[in-house]
Computed example of a mutant assay.
Amino acid sequence: MTDRIPTMYEWAGGAEALGRLTEEFYSRVRKDPLLAPLFAHMAEDHPQHVAVFLGEVLGGPERYTEQHGGYPHMLSRHRGRAIRPEQRARWVELMLEAMDVAGLPDDAEFRSAFVGYIEFGSRRAMANSQPGVAPSSRTTIKKWGWGEALPGDD
């Protein structure tokens, strides 16, 4: 018996679940009047790249870094896009809808941690997308975990 806590990647269902999530999400994005213009020139395989990125963030294999250029490449895809607050909020909204349709776990712990990352990541993407913003000095993908409850917080 092991007391090892699964990574968020494992708990979510791994690559297959994240692939379902991003396919569902981007099918919504392509039809959304607020977001479709931002993604008008999106490559057909973009959903798969995002699934691989999310997998690495959530504690899965480091395939995005190894195969797609890691954090510097991801950052380059957002620079200069001038994402507006209402677009960021809609992005989060559609991601949450896609989570339900794709069948990601609906337990409070997973949803809380995942939404925490979606909020964090979308806000960083928006900030990094603004004209004139200096490139981040970060070179690695930030890993996201479960977090820990404070003692006595049940």
Rank of each mutant, 00 (worst) to 15 (best):
Q130H: 06
Y117V: 10
G116V: 07
A98Q: 04
G103W: 07
A89G: 04
G147L: 07
F25T: 06
M95R: 02
A15P: 01
P105Y: 12
G69Q: 06
A51P: 11
E16Q: 11
K142M: 04
E62T: 14
F53W: 15
F39A: 04
R30G: 02
L35N: 05
S137E: 11
P105C: 11
F120A: 11
V92G: 03
L75I: 00
R90V: 06
F53K: 04
R90P: 07
Q67W: 10
H49S: 08
P37L: 14
K142T: 06
Q67E: 14
A40H: 05
W91V: 04
R84E: 15
E62K: 15
V52S: 07
L54R: 03
T139Q: 13
G59D: 07
G55N: 04
F120M: 14
T22H: 13
R30M: 04
P131H: 15
T65I: 05
P72T: 13
H41I: 00
S122Y: 04
E148V: 13
R124P: 00
M42K: 06
W146A: 01
A15N: 07
A15V: 03
M126E: 15
A36R: 15
S122T: 14
E109G: 10
A127G: 06
I118C: 06
I141Q: 03
N128E: 13
A43K: 15
Y64P: 01
S76A: 14
G19Q: 10
A82R: 12
M42C: 07
G55C: 09
L104P: 12
Y71R: 13
E97C: 06
Q130V: 07
H41A: 15
S76I: 01
Y71F: 15
H78M: 11
Q48E: 13
E93V: 00
P61R: 13
D32T: 11
L18N: 12
H73R: 12
R20T: 03
G14W: 09
P47S: 07
H78Q: 14
G14D: 08
G116K: 11
K142G: 01
A43C: 01
L150H: 10
V101N: 04
H78R: 10
H68I: 00
L21R: 04
L104I: 07
S136I: 09
E148M: 12
G55R: 05
Q87G: 05
R84W: 08
E24A: 15
G103M: 10
M42I: 02
V52M: 09
A17T: 05
H78P: 12
K31S: 08
A82Y: 01
L104Q: 09
R88E: 12
G60P: 10
E16A: 15
